[in-house]
Design a binder for these strands. Sequence first.
DNA 1: ACCTATGTTATCGC
DNA 2: GGCGATAACATAGG
Length: 260
Amino acid sequence: MPELPDVEQFKKLAQKTSLNKQIISVQVTNDKVLEGTDQKKLNSKLNNKMFRSVYRHGKHLLLDTEENVCMSMHFGMSGSLRYSSKEEKTGNYDRVIVIFANREKLVYTSKRLLGRVGMCRNPTQFITDNKLGPDALSIGKDEFAKMMQHKRGNVKQALMDQTKIAGIGNHYSDEILYQAEIFPLTPVSELSAAQIDLLYLKMNQILRTANKLGADVAKFPQDWFLKFRKQGEKCSKCKSRVEKGKISGRSFYYCPGCQK
DNA sequence: ACCTATGTTATCGC
DNA sequence: GGCGATAACATAGG
């Protein structure tokens, strides 16, 4: 699931459950998800500290102790986060488990091991080190327009370039382009100023609405593309059939009637 | 058996 | 240096 709105839910979860509680231990059941750290380091840095604040930048979650010790999480394609009672036992795909003094746990799960958990000094440092662009919900309209004007290639890949704007992936870029009625492979250089403005507007509307609806596609409005993003499905607006395309090994979907 | 899947990254060729 | 395409990572489901 994890694109910006999904990670926003994880942020809310962590805020609600995991702040200001003493960490007593960090368990790692598969160290393939660890990046630049190991179980020993995680424990030496985090034990006896508390998470004081949670940040989300793009698709990354940052749990900050505010003592120059900050835990970073990225969820890949199949990762998620949950808070678990002391009774609940470890699941097959639970990879990193932060245990608090009350024995409850913050559990990082990743079926396909594509995500990463690491440590950094603070969120700002993390963003710089990972060359992340501004968060999609923080970027200003002018900054967005300037970015698009400097970018080459097609509009879909521009929206998904995490070094330019952080947070948009394959699903939400399809949604944004559908609602803006722009064909995904349109070269950025061919977009009008009005289209760039519209992309900015739709990006904001869509991400904010998705956040509000808990990133739960089942709750999304019926006319959203993500409700029928599948080859051969009927577009809710024009009744054309959804078509599938491919860029650099990755599928995208679009409505040939609406997106020119 | 084969293809596909919400992400990122190393590598190769141009 | 940079861009694009491709494979790779690991697992499940159609």
